[in-house]
């Protein structure tokens, strides 16, 4: 039996779907994670990821194949966040860097075995408590620490899509870690994992 071939489907669209599926969809977990940590709200994170992907698909013909698609998606998300979400959202009270600096100096210790002690303390903290601490960081610092420590971007990549010099990335990252350490230390103290004198209970 000879069956004649059917009408052609829209192969161009098929190729576009195929490329987008291969290049962009695998980064959805990372983008959701970033959105969730930036907004601190699941519904807002859903909206932000959705909007990012719809925009990305609309402009996918502008994406240069072979370049870093994850960084391209993060740039789109950052713009969506700045243009849409941040306008609506009221920033909650954020930690003040100067306060942190003072606090940090007080709890600094010269103990050589510091690593073991502190890891035990923070290991007992719940994911929600750590997430809350991240959300409590000022936005510029929060962005950098998420991109570096959770998403694993290099300084150059972060500088590229946040559009700041590499030196500023380094400086903000240092400060962000310092602030986050202080916030986590506070949580650990409130939970009773550490005494007010800084000793592990």
């Amino acid at each position: 039996m000879q069956l004649r071939s059917a009408s052609n489907t829209d192969t161009k669209l098929q190729i576009l779907y195929q490329d987008f599926e291969k290049e962009a969809i695998p980064h959805m977990d990372s983008l959701y994670n970033f959105a969730l940590k930036m907004t601190g709200d699941e519904d807002d994170a859903d909206d932000l990821v959705q909007e990012t992907y719809l925009k990305a698909f609309r402009f996918f013909d502008k994406f240069e194949k072979g370049t870093n698609c994850k960084a391209w998606l993060f740039r789109i998300m950052k713009n969506s966040y700045i243009n849409d979400y941040r306008k609506q959202a009221k920033e909650p009270n954020k930690v003040d860097y100067e306060d942190v600096q003072n606090f940090y100096e007080n709890i600094k210790s010269d103990e050589v075995e510091l690593k073991h002690y502190e890891q035990d303390v923070f290991t007992n903290l719940l994911d929600d408590e750590i997430s809350k601490a991240i959300t409590g960081l000022p936005e510029d610092f929060r962005t950098i620490i998420i991109l570096s420590d959770i998403e694993g971007f290099t300084y150059d990549e972060i500088a590229d899509f946040v559009d700041i010099p590499v030196g500023t990335v380094r400086s903000r990252l240092h400060r962000a870690r310092k602030m986050l350490y202080s916030l986590l230390y506070d949580y650990a103290k409130d939970k009773g994992f550490v005494s007010s004198s800084g000793q592990k209970k």
Partner: peptide
């Protein structure tokens, strides 16, 4: 150690979400 601690903590807890 403090900086490594924060970095490792975030990576371990959230990078596979």
């Amino acid at each position: 150690l403090r900086q490594s601690l924060v970095k490792n903590l975030l990576h371990q807890r959230f990078s596979n979400s």
